[in-house]
């Protein structure tokens, strides 16, 4: 495993830790999109179908369990925890995320590398992950006061796929038998590009020592 992949995974992990910290310690999920969290849970389920059958490394298995467990605990907190669920701003979280699921499923059925159940589900998870942040980005734009933890959560989440892209380039150059999949590269690029606007305002507010706010 190269440094880009590892750094990407750590960013991904850090984003989840930051979000859980906000929810668990502050007992608040203000500014967090439940729809984006539902999409991520679906992404992990579909991608990690091989969790018990395809062993790659202890590291991979543990990380898969961590991502699945954290996704479901976040959903549980936002939907069922008696204090946290009251901080969920349902009226601001209006993105029609079922359309994203439908569109990604249709695309995965049409564009994939191999027509097997697992491969189509894997492809679906790649497409869905690329756009899963959209409900969250829309919600951020509507939030006047984005707290630090929410801002950092989105920043770490956006950085993770960007580092994965460097990892793919590195693997392409160094591994002879590397199975590079162009649909992953395109999806990863779209996924990272969706954050461009957010990155710009995040860095700007950090440099000016101001509170993060996205223009409406």
């Amino acid at each position: 495993m190269n440094i880009f992949r590892f750094a990407g995974d750590m960013m991904h992990l850090l984003s989840v830790v930051v979000l859980l910290l906000k929810i668990h310690k502050m007992k608040s999920c203000a500014g967090i999109s439940l729809k984006t969290q539902e999409l991520y849970a679906l992404v992990f389920i579909c991608r990690y179908l091989d969790i018990f059958t395809g062993f790659i490394s202890l590291y991979n298995t543990i990380m898969k369990i961590v991502f699945l467990a954290s996704a479901f605990s976040i959903l549980w907190y936002m939907r069922s925890h008696k204090v946290v669920r009251q901080t969920y701003d349902k009226d601001q979280d209006t993105f029609r995320h079922y359309f994203l699921i439908l569109a990604c499923m249709v695309l995965a059925l049409l564009v994939h590398h191999k027509f097997t159940f697992r491969e189509v589900m894997w492809t679906f998870s790649i497409y869905l992950e690329a756009v899963a942040i959209l409900p969250q980005l829309v919600m951020l734009q509507r939030t006047r006061n984005i707290d630090n933890l929410t801002g950092n959560y989105v920043f770490f989440l956006g950085t993770y796929r960007g580092l994965y892209m460097l990892n793919w380039v590195y693997r392409y150059l160094t591994e002879v038998h590397y199975h590079h999949r162009w649909l992953t590269w395109i999806s990863g690029f779209i996924q990272t590009a969706l954050y461009a606007d957010f990155f710009y305002y995040y860095v700007k507010s950090w440099r000016n020592n101001e509170k993060l706010q996205l223009p409406a």
Binding site: H12, R47, G54, N60, M63, K64, W122, N167
Partner: peptide, 10 residues
């Protein structure tokens, strides 16, 4: 065919 087993990333 080891295509399906090459999903070694997260």
């Amino acid at each position: 065919d080891d295509d399906e087993d090459s999903h070694d990333e997260l």
